[in-house]
Simulated scan of single mutants.
Amino acid sequence: MMNESDALSVFDGMRTESPASIENYKTVVRRFIKHHPDVYEVTTDEIAQYLEDMLNDGYADKTVDAARTGLIKFFGQLDRDDDPTDSDKLDIWSWYQYTGKTRKTEKKEIIYLEQDEINKLIENLPAPVLRNELIVRLMFETGLRATELCTLKVEDIDTDNRRIDVIGGKGNKDRTVYYDETLDTLLEIWLVDRQGVYVDNTPYLFPTNRSEHISQRRLADVINKGAEKAGIQETLYVDKSGKGRKRVTPHTIRHSFAMACLNNGMPIKFLQELMGHDRMETTEVYLNALDTDVEKSYRRWGPQY
């Protein structure tokens, strides 16, 4: 048997993954060992069944994929007497294929905001308005993930060239994003105002009066309050835990960035680099969303008399 502390310790010293990814893996493992505490004896079939049960219990494909990835990382790090063979590892990774399960192939709806909705959101943000407006506009202009925005450091911003170096993004991948000159004044004022009013001597761009940088939970709360006041928020569905999933979230703004870029004619390869996607297939999901907006696009950009 392995207790939770020992199980999570296998990720100690893992240098190839970002801290956020490691925390996600630990969450997966905590849940898994409640069902299979004897990880030294668990089989590939049991792992496959565990993931299949998650799918049958109504967990989203994305959640099951995250669990599968976390377990692969865990068992890859775990030193077992009966190490699985390469074919066993392939079975774990490709369990849908080997168990006859078929993934959903229908296009998933991408939730995003139009420019006028972004404007409404900005106009209705809670205090501190200066900070929160800069946050939303920066996310919309760069496509930063929530965790990247929260941990963005002042030293990573090149104000002369309007560039931001994203250090240790998802998958521990670095990239560069850009912003427009319309943010110059707002950013300049904030760089002065953040000193003294919030936590002192912090390297992060967005501190609070209690911590070195804004948390993802606080960021989501800011976006939610602004969206509700603007009248653009809604609950899409209620998940298994009873929590309502909202239409407007920090990730919605990232989607909005991607859709705005494509609608304005940006080549998909450039968008992939700006989004920090390893695989082109991940970025192409947004092209599918464009396909669903054919009529809307025609009404907006078609011939006019």
Rank of each mutant, 00 (worst) to 15 (best):
G13M: 11
M139P: 06
L274T: 01
M266T: 10
A258L: 05
D116W: 13
F140G: 09
R163I: 07
L130D: 10
L191V: 04
A20M: 15
V199Q: 10
G244F: 11
F270M: 15
I167T: 07
E41D: 12
T85E: 02
N124D: 05
T43Y: 05
R218W: 14
Y237E: 05
T185W: 14
D38N: 08
K229N: 03
L183M: 08
I135D: 03
L55C: 12
R30C: 14
T249L: 06
I33K: 02
F11T: 07
D91V: 12
L274G: 00
P37R: 06
E117F: 01
D79L: 05
A227R: 12
L152M: 07
P250W: 01
N224Y: 14
W93H: 13
D38F: 09
L78T: 01
E123V: 07
D160F: 12
V154T: 14
V154F: 02
S18L: 12
N119W: 08
G168W: 04
D160S: 11
T102A: 13
T85P: 01
E117L: 00
E41P: 03
D86Q: 10
K225N: 09
L219C: 02
P250K: 05
T85V: 00
Q233A: 08
P203W: 13
A227V: 07
T185Y: 14
K120L: 12
L149W: 03
Y179P: 02
N161W: 09
L125N: 07
K296C: 09
K225R: 15
R137K: 05
V238H: 06
E109R: 14
L78E: 03
N209P: 12
V39R: 01
M54T: 07
L149E: 04
K89V: 15
N3S: 06
E234Y: 09
L205F: 06
A230C: 03
K243P: 13
Y50T: 09
A60K: 06
D82C: 10
G70T: 11
I92K: 05
V10Y: 09
V248D: 00
L219D: 08
G100Y: 01
V39E: 11
E123K: 07
Q115C: 13
T249K: 11
T185I: 15
F75V: 03
D45M: 09
F206V: 08
E188Q: 08
I157S: 00
D83N: 13
N119Y: 11
I164V: 03
H213T: 01
H213G: 06
N132A: 02
E234P: 12
Y305L: 15
E41G: 12
Y298P: 12
T176P: 08
L113C: 05
D57V: 02
